[in-house]
Design a protein around this nucleic acid. Structure first.
Lengths: 232, 232
DNA sequence: CGACCATTTGAGGAGGCTCAACGCAGGTGG
DNA sequence: CCACCTGCGTTGAGCCTCCTCAAATGGTCG
């Protein structure tokens, strides 16, 4: 991987930014980069020098254990940010699930902007907050939910975040292996669980990457809602 | 729980702060509060109006599912902060594992201080960063590690964070149930796993709440180290 | 001493994993 | 154009880890 990474990085084309979008970050230096399928945006434990906003395509963040087990940390869709994992170094590696275009910002520049521009600071704080909330939700899911509940939660979550639609359904850009490593399950269990949901007419599976939710409320129940929330 | 909470909160004594510590937060309004065992500091989904620094004792953060399953989010020891979970509302409830004294700060005040004092801001950002990193580590643990690996990681982590020592070992203030809900296991599995580690002379279990690590390197191996980290 | 609680230990069962076979689509080369 | 290969997904059979249920142990406090 040490040797492979520079080669793979070489596939990633670097352009000057085309049209600064109408958001505070267009004031600071940035580049549009294109990442080929399965290429790395950054490696695990790399100095976290940059953060990225995904313009198109999908990324995953992942960490490998010594024996090859893998945990996918998150999927990152168009419009979302990635690269805020960890402090000085990245906790996860980030890779492209499908070819992706990213806006790249130096963290140094971003921090300077945040000190000057409250809007920018608030946006970044919001991103951090969302990551933290998502991480907490995952902890509950991985710690206490069954395979069916995890897959159902996953579908509900993805359905709400993914832009790419098809015939009343949506596109699942990642492989079964990616989903399994995200949910702490095996490929076979993910496949079987999706098969169950299909046979129960809760979802429709056109092909492996095109899913349609037929019974959203049933799926939400299977996803396992929290206890009612009271407040002190 | 709705009814119980105010009653339990009533146990928590509120004093004026005694001696402002020598850290930037002593400039802003704060109170020392005492939380009795198993009493709540704040509830799940409450408006996140305050954050707390633990002076003594131990807290846990936890979330309940509808059917009573529980996930413990974190343990918080003396010197650590709690209350930064989620944005406007708390994701987890926070409760005292053992009677605890806390410094309480209004978030509003803290944010004002952070805008003025870079040191304070950096400290808080560090706390957030650490929470995020800890959450990511938990995701890997819950998603991909075995019971033995989880318990071993837990012991290594706690051993490095807990101040209270006893006879070359340390004090485990929380119950087996708390540990189980933290690690995504059952009480019985936690107990059996600790028993195994004891029988293998990797740890020594004085009683349920006093543990000593006999073979730290062996325990670290069992905890399952990450793959070597390369950098692009 | 006896009630109660937390913990440990044991026996049996289930959910999800492992291993293996098969189908299918896409790419490649003869 | 077809044979072949490869990667991915699905499905099945058997097994293992961890869970469930139950009982025994031990410590604490009336």
């Amino acid at each position: 991987m040490l040797a492979a990474t520079p080669l793979r990085m070489a596939h990633n084309l670097v352009h000057p930014a085309p049209s600064p979008a109408a958001f505070p970050f267009s004031q600071i230096a940035h580049q549009v980069i294109t990442i080929g399928r399965d290429a790395e945006v950054y490696s695990e434990a790399c100095p976290a020098s940059h953060v990225y906003k995904v313009l198109s395509g999908t990324l995953r963040t992942a960490k490998l254990l010594a024996d090859g087990r893998r945990q996918v940390g998150s999927f990152v869709f168009a419009g979302e940010w990635v690269g805020f994992d960890g402090g000085l170094t990245h906790f996860y590696a980030a890779e492209a699930v499908s070819e992706a275009r990213l806006l790249s910002f130096a963290r140094r520049d971003l921090e300077r902007l945040m000190a000057e521009d409250r809007d920018a600071a608030r946006i970044v704080e919001g991103v951090l907050c969302d990551s933290l909330a998502a991480a907490f939700e995952r902890i509950v899911s991985l710690g206490r939910k069954s395979a069916t509940e995890r897959v159902a939660s996953f579908l509900v979550d993805i359905e709400g975040r993914i832009a790419e639609r098809s015939k009343g359904g949506f596109v699942l850009p990642m492989s079964r292996g990616d989903i399994a490593d995200y949910l702490g399950l095996t490929i076979e269990t993910v496949s079987r669980t999706l098969g169950d949901l299909r046979r129960r007419h809760i979802i429709q599976v056109e092909d492996a990457h095109h899913v349609r939710i037929l019974d959203p409320s049933h799926l939400a129940v299977l996803a396992g809602e929290d206890a009612q929330r009271y407040c002190a």
